[in-house]
């Protein structure tokens, strides 16, 4: 039987990380096609609920990326996001959601290669975990 390819959602801030993803494209750096990007203005726009909903809908992995600390287009958005996800990510780990399901990082507009690297890394780790199960709706069905 063919293994279903995992799907990964990436919430990328418009100003740095989304631009970094574009730069990977402009530079033709190849990476696995499992990622689906949702553009948000700022990493601070990402509500932890989005992540839970994604896992519930059956998305196999989540990546949230924002501008590096200090680079935020909205002055302090990524610092706010950092606090949120410090708590949230620790909570998910604590509950027993696999560590590699949900990832956070900073990607600048100049880091096209790094974006591709991270997508590769995240995709590999999510593949290793197999399909998302723990928070998926109608698990028994």
């Amino acid at each position: 039987m063919k293994v279903k390819e995992p799907k990964i959602v990436a919430f990328l801030c418009n100003w740095c990380s989304y631009a970094g993803a574009d730069l990977a494209g402009v530079s033709r750096i190849q990476y696995p096609p499992n990622i689906r990007v949702i553009r948000v203005p700022c990493s601070s726009r990402v509500n932890p609920l989005f992540i839970l909903k994604a896992l519930q809908e059956g998305v196999d992995g989540v990546l949230v990326a924002g501008c590096h600390p200090g680079d935020c287009h909205y002055i302090s958005g990524n610092y706010l996001a950092r606090r949120k996800f410090t708590i949230f990510k620790n909570l998910l780990d604590y509950l027993g959601i696999e560590k590699d399901r949900v990832h956070f990082t900073w990607i600048s507009a100049a880091e096209g290669a790094r974006f591709a690297e991270i997508v590769k890394e995240v995709t590999e780790r999510v593949k290793k975990l197999g399909p998302v199960k723990r928070l998926v709706k109608n698990r028994s069905a």
């Binding site: 606090r83 620790n90 790094r114």
Partner: peptide, 10 residues
């Protein structure tokens, strides 16, 4: 100066 050790990717 908040810690950011929740970042584990690359």
């Amino acid at each position: 100066k908040d810690r950011e050790d929740f970042i584990d990717t690359c």
